[in-house]
Design a protein around this nucleic acid. Structure first.
Length: 435
RNA sequence: GGGGAGUUCGCAUAGUGGUCUAGUGCGGUCGCCUGCUAAGCGAUUACCAAUAGAAAUAUUGGUCGAGGGUUCAAAUCCCUCACUCCCCGCCA
């Protein structure tokens, strides 16, 4: 979300940015919002003048009422002044309605105008123009067949999709035994990994109020993602980012507390209405999963440096578990409207012989803080908007796919990387135990 | 789940319809005074918006948990909601 003042003063920059994102249909919105804003400001000026006169007339009434105790004739004057106030009441009501309406319209348009993208973002109209920046680790091409991930899990009695279907329906899972332990071990390792990077570990609320949900996502996203608790004003979070950013809504953050570097754990609940493809059996796309997230709130001048650090943390984490990854930069057309710059970290799938998304790192600039009224009070006493960033540390159910495929041995065992040994009670290799 | 009390400037509090331009204390900042250590005096100390200005700032409007209502006028009265604390019940 852009600052209306910025749009007003730099309409050409805003339009050029819209073109770069291949959203030409939004071009007329720029002039439209500038016109509506002008109308709104005129209404504000007129209404403020009327309110000022009402306030001073009301004060006169107060004084006259006090005098009327000794001099009842003052009451006549009171009536005259009341009539004056009433004469303006209709116009003021009209203006107030207009102000409210225009403010809503202006905001609605501002929410549609995309954030100004970073000059470094590659230009392209859709995800086919995303750019592979760099690979980390050699993509393995095994000389034996890699089974589908749920089939690997089953050799360890590690998953029960049938029972999950009966109990909860499609899109749920039971992880069992060593596979469940591996899931928890990865989360615990990822937690400690981020703590060692200086991040503060958080466990946030897993349910949040509707007004917070409306703050952090659009109505459309809300409908396709969020589960609502019946009879309560509570929604299950789709990611801990919802509760972590919600923490800052309407808050004034002391500058001395920046940068806020947080790593949060939560289960995530998503309706995932819409397409389910062939590769989406098993635990790839599910209604419930667990995730370790990283969130940074920092000074504007520091956000790009944090962005670079954050995606590298993901790469380092995956490489420490010996999983090949690549950085895929989001092109202008594929970049969500709120984002300045974003990239995915994708893990190598030896079975599919391709990379798939496991982390998504985004710099939102000040768009999120403007939208949510998160402000920082600077040393000089001035308020400014901080920049916000977020990135996945790891989301184990999906990441287990990459893990199992990359560590599967020809004999069906799965090796455990050294960094996880202590989290696995010393287990260094998983041996198939299906009876 | 039932009952009660609350939510006012960083903190603590005053404020039952007009003299609230929201007071006071503490803390913070600045200045003055006193040649010494918990002293004194004075000033200042919330946010948002519009307008004017190069700017510091000024004027006006709005904000007393949030939203709505009554009124010429709302911190104050009414309604809805959120949150906090206490008691009872239930329960990891």
């Amino acid at each position: 979300m852009l600052d209306i003042k910025f749009v007003r003063e730099n309409p050409e920059i805003v339009k050029e940015n819209i073109r770069k994102k291949f959203q030409d249909r939004k071009l007329p919105l720029v002039d439209e919002v500038i016109a509506l804003d002008k109308e709104n400001r005129e209404a504000i000026v007129e209404a403020n003048n009327l309110r000022a006169s009402r306030n001073s007339l009301s004060k006169q009434i107060g004084a006259l009422m006090a005098q009327s105790k000794s001099d009842p004739s003052k009451l006549e004057e009171v009536e005259k002044i009341k009539a004056q106030v009433e004469a303006n009441a209709a116009r003021l009501a009209e203006l107030e309605a207009k102000e409210a309406e225009l403010e809503v319209k202006v905001r609605a348009i501002l929410l549609q105008i995309p954030n100004i993208i970073d000059p470094s973002v590659p230009i392209g109209k859709d995800d086919t123009f995303n750019v592979e920046v760099q690979r980390f680790g050699e993509p393995k091409v095994p000389n034996f067949e890699i089974p589908y991930h749920t089939d690997i899990m089953e050799t360890f009695n590690g998953v029960d999709m049938d029972a999950a279907g009966r109990v909860s329906g499609n899109g749920f899972y039971y992880l069992m035994g060593d596979i469940a332990r591996l899931h928890s071990a990865i989360l615990a390792y990822a937690r400690d990994f981020m703590i060692n990077k200086g991040f503060t570990y958080c466990i946030p609320p897993f349910m949040i109020h509707g007004n917070v949900v409306e703050g952090v996502m659009s109505q459309t996203d809300m409908d396709v993602m969020m589960y609502k608790i019946e009879g309560e004003d509570l929604y299950l979070i789709g990611t801990s980012e919802h509760s972590m950013i919600g923490k800052f809504i309407d808050q004034i953050i002391p500058e001395s507390s920046l940068p806020q570097t947080l790593t949060s754990y939560s289960p995530c609940f998503r309706k995932e209405k819409g397409a389910h493809g062939i590769e989406e059996r098993g635990v790839y796309r599910i209604h419930q999963f667990e995730k370790q997230e990283m969130i940074v709130v920092c000074k504007p001048e520091d956000s790009m440096a944090w962005y670079e650090k954050m995606w590298r943390f993901s790469v380092e984490l995956f490489r420490s578990m010996d999983i090949p990854v690549r950085q895929l930069e989001c092109c202008s057309g594929d970049l969500a409207d709120l984002k300045v710059k974003s990239c995915d970290i994708e893990a190598w799938s030896p079975r599919q012989q391709k990379y798939f998304e496991v982390c998504s790192c985004s710099n939102l600039g000040d768009a999120q803080s403007r939208r949510l009224k998160m402000r920082v009070k600077g040393a000089d006493g001035k308020m400014y908007l901080p920049h916000t960033l977020n990135n996945t540390v790891v989301a184990p159910p999906r990441m287990l796919i990459a893990f199992l495929e990359n560590h599967l041995q020809p004999d069906g065992s799965v090796t455990i990387p050294e960094v996880l040994w202590s989290y696995m009670g010393g287990t260094k290799v998983l041996i198939p135990n299906k009876k």
